[in-house]
């Protein structure tokens, strides 16, 4: 088995592009994401359309551009402006926005009273949770690229030859899994740690907590990629990307949302990413891991289940003589 692991590493030069993407480009992506998420401002950008000079009190969370003509509606769609404010004949402010009702009211209140209502924003999720949500999706998509040796071995009949040696399929999968895990874990951890230490970006976790959380994250991605590589024959990468994106959106890796559809709620709660997101949010808020043992066990169960199914499918195909 050690030989198999070593073999994976020896074959890296053959797949240099994958390694460069995994070890250089992805960490850069993650670093950039962390860096920019720190800059993400929740400022209302308002176009105030008026011929008269009216001055408004300065506020950190609202930025007013005075213009004479109404800008194109598409600038609202593109997010250049969040709202247009016009004054009608009676001196009332009319707010046009694509944002929700509470935001519209907040802007209206600001123009009428010179102050934004307090706590008008819904409670925001921590930076760390957002970052790890994003990293989780990248890892799920990347994992399968790092598992590429396995389908390649099958296609070249190398897999069959390996099985004639004293190695069984479980050991083979374990070796492949260890390789994928290392290649996912190490660059990701280093990327986040460097951005935290060198650039001083606050990510909401200590390095210890981060290390533990990334172990769970990388195991999940590894198990998932082994599972996908086992059950699919072709277009593995495309299929995996699709499933990862859909399930990550559903599990709230990017946006925390509450739906009103029961079936969808149940579906979301089944996803391992959901449990993981609850866990990291709690950890970021300073709670202990132990309090969320349920979520932890649930995620780990998924890891083992995916691994097991992948292994069973491979074994059955070997017995049938597919490989």
């Amino acid at each position: 088995m050690l030989n198999l692991i070593r073999n994976r590493f020896l074959r890296i030069p053959d797949k240099m592009h994958i390694m460069i993407i995994a070890v250089v480009v992805m960490p850069l992506f993650i670093g950039a994401a962390i860096f920019f998420s720190g800059h993400f401002t929740n400022v209302y950008k308002v176009a105030f359309i008026s011929d008269h000079a009216i001055s408004f009190p300065k506020s950190k969370s609202i930025q007013i551009d005075k213009i004479n003509e109404r800008p194109a509606t598409s600038s609202l769609a593109m997010g250049k402006y969040n709202a247009f404010v016009e004054v009608n004949k009676d001196g009332e402010f009319k707010v046009t926005t694509l944002k929700g009702e509470s935001d519209k009211k907040a802007i209206q209140t600001f123009f009428e009273g010179g102050k934004l209502p307090e706590n008008n924003k819904t409670e925001q999720r921590g930076i760390g949770t957002n970052i790890l949500g994003f990293v989780l999706m990248l890892a799920l998509m990347q994992g399968v690229a790092l598992t590429t040796f396995y389908p390649e071995d099958r296609n070249n009949s190398t897999f069959k030859r390996i099985l004639t040696s004293p190695v069984n399929s479980r050991q083979y999968l374990a070796a492949q899994g260890i390789f994928t895990f290392i290649c996912l874990y190490v660059p990701t951890f280093i990327a986040i740690a460097i951005t935290k230490i060198c650039f001083g970006v606050e990510i909401g976790f200590g390095l210890g907590n981060l290390a533990v959380l990334l172990v769970i994250l990388a195991s999940l991605a590894t198990a998932f990629s082994l599972f996908m590589a086992s059950i699919m024959d072709r277009n593995i990468s495309l299929g995996t990307s699709g499933i990862s994106i859909i399930t990550c959106i559903l599990a709230g890796c990017f946006f925390n949302f509450t739906g009103n559809i029961k079936v969808l709620d149940v579906l979301c709660n089944i996803l391992p990413q959901k449990a993981f997101m609850i866990l990291i949010q709690a950890v970021e808020n300073g709670r202990a891991f132990q309090e969320f043992a349920g979520q932890l066990t649930y995620t780990v169960t998924w890891v083992f289940a995916l691994w097991l199914v992948g292994s069973v499918v491979t074994n059955r195909r070997i017995k049938k003589g597919v490989y």
Partner: peptide, 18 residues
């Protein structure tokens, strides 16, 4: 994708024309 993203971000958008 459209359905999912639209559903998930519903609350960020108002009843305006988009």
């Amino acid at each position: 994708l459209i359905g999912l993203m639209g559903f998930v971000t519903q609350s960020f958008f108002g009843s305006g024309n988009m």
